[in-house]
Simulated scan of single mutants.
Amino acid sequence: MENTEIFKVSVPQQVLDDLKSRLENTRWPGEATGSGWTFGTSEAYLKELVKYWLTEYDWRKQEKALNIYPQYIANVNGVKIHFQYVKGKSENSKPLVLTHGWPDSYYRFHKIIPLLTEGVQSFDLIIPSIPGFGFSDKTALTSEAVADLWKGLMTENLGYEKFYAAGGDVGMGVTKALASKYPDVVAGVHFTDLGYPMGQEDPATMTEAEKQFAEFVQEWWYSEGAYAMVHSTKPQSLAYGLNESPAGLASWIISFGTAGASPDILEDAFGGKDELLTNIMIYWVTQTIATSMRMYKVDAAAQWSGAEPLQKSDVPSGVATFPREAQFPKEWAERFVNVVSFTKMKEGGHFAALEVPEIFAGELQTFFYGIDKKSLK
């Protein structure tokens, strides 16, 4: 591997001691009587979570688990990229880069690693941290710029001539850009969402199903889209508070991390308290909440700059919609990618790789091994 070095997660004890002190001295704002989750993250729930964080959660245990799989830092065009690299057990394993979103991290995929690296239909898994997230460089880049880095990582640093890619949320934008810009090396892509109508579409070109989807998104945007509006406009103003208070950081991530899941199954959406907190901890110990939010701002600036949008790609694309996600129609996906597989899943949500790992892994295997019977070399 070119320009790469081995990486291990190792957080200084003073960072953990400082975290403990901040959690113990949280200034609680109080909440409206009986408000529950209607005003945002429930204070009663958050107090319970902070207590668990202080008394039962074991970062060193989670740190050891994070280090089970090989990790590296690669220098790609001057940007340091952290990534997990787990080779499949089959001699014909396909190279697959998985891209996370917000407010999750590369940790999103930890449950599907053993599922996708064993057996005949296995993959060489490359799971990077987007720049500005986790252990990669603290720099916010557009989705297109990240796609450029992924192409360099896969072909130059790791030496693959062709590869596959999958992603959702922010990872969707990166994966879509990979397919549009590099169809000569990207053999197939998979998505769990394909963006949302933002008023730029000509209604005359939209089907009835797309119009209904747009109406749903508009309603959702006014009720749940505050995080994206803040990130796309004033991320720095919010970052000071979130970088200062671990309880505040947890509240923000939890409030917008349910993604279609009701609060009573919030922990199931992330995989339990320990996994929920480990994801939050990755932001806390790296101090990357500011740069992660900033990516929304630079992407929005690029979108409204007047630059030509990416062309629709001919790369074979698989799309899976999960029931606790926005239910977009197939024709919406076909606006952007070459849809050869469109599957409505029976269970799962935004964090399908955490919620229903067996189902999600099976979908990836079925799609990628279905579109290409010849193994990549």
Rank of each mutant, 00 (worst) to 15 (best):
V9N: 13
Q14D: 15
V15R: 14
L19C: 13
K20H: 11
W28P: 04
T33Y: 05
S35Q: 02
S35F: 00
G36K: 05
F39Q: 06
E43C: 06
E43M: 14
L46H: 05
V50C: 15
E56A: 11
Y57I: 06
Y57T: 02
D58V: 03
K64R: 13
A65V: 03
L66I: 03
N67M: 09
Y69K: 06
Q71T: 01
Y72N: 10
N75H: 08
I81Y: 04
Y85H: 14
K87N: 05
K87V: 07
K89W: 00
P95T: 02
L96T: 05
L96P: 09
L98F: 10
T99S: 14
H100R: 11
H100C: 08
G101R: 02
G101H: 00
W102L: 04
W102K: 00
Y107E: 02
R108E: 15
E118V: 06
L125P: 07
P128E: 04
I130D: 07
P131D: 01
P131T: 01
P131K: 05
G132D: 08
G132C: 10
S136I: 02
S136H: 03
S136L: 07
L141M: 14
T142G: 11
S143A: 14
S143E: 09
E144D: 11
V146I: 15
V146S: 11
L149N: 04
L149V: 01
L149T: 00
G152I: 10
E156D: 14
N157H: 01
Y164A: 04
Y164D: 06
A166E: 08
G167R: 12
G168C: 12
M172P: 00
G173E: 04
K176S: 13
L178V: 08
S180Y: 09
S180F: 10
Y182V: 06
F191I: 09
Y196F: 15
Y196Q: 14
D202Q: 07
P203S: 07
T205A: 15
T205E: 15
E210P: 04
E210I: 05
A214Q: 06
A214W: 08
W221A: 14
Y222I: 10
S223A: 12
E224A: 12
E224T: 02
Y227I: 01
A228E: 08
M229S: 10
H231W: 07
P235L: 04
G241N: 07
L242W: 03
P246W: 09
L249V: 00
A250S: 14
I254T: 10
I254D: 08
I254L: 15
S255K: 11
S255W: 00
T258R: 15
T258P: 00
T258V: 07
P263D: 03
D264W: 02
I265K: 15
G272T: 00
E275Q: 13
M281L: 12
W284V: 03
W284P: 04
W284D: 05
T286K: 11
Q287Y: 01
A290E: 09
T291L: 13
R294S: 03
S305I: 09
S305T: 05
P309E: 07
L310T: 01
K312L: 10
K312C: 09
R324S: 08
Q327C: 04
F328V: 01
A333P: 01
R335S: 06
V339D: 11
K346C: 01
A352G: 03
F360D: 01
F360T: 02
L364H: 09
F367I: 04
I371F: 12
L376P: 08
K377V: 03
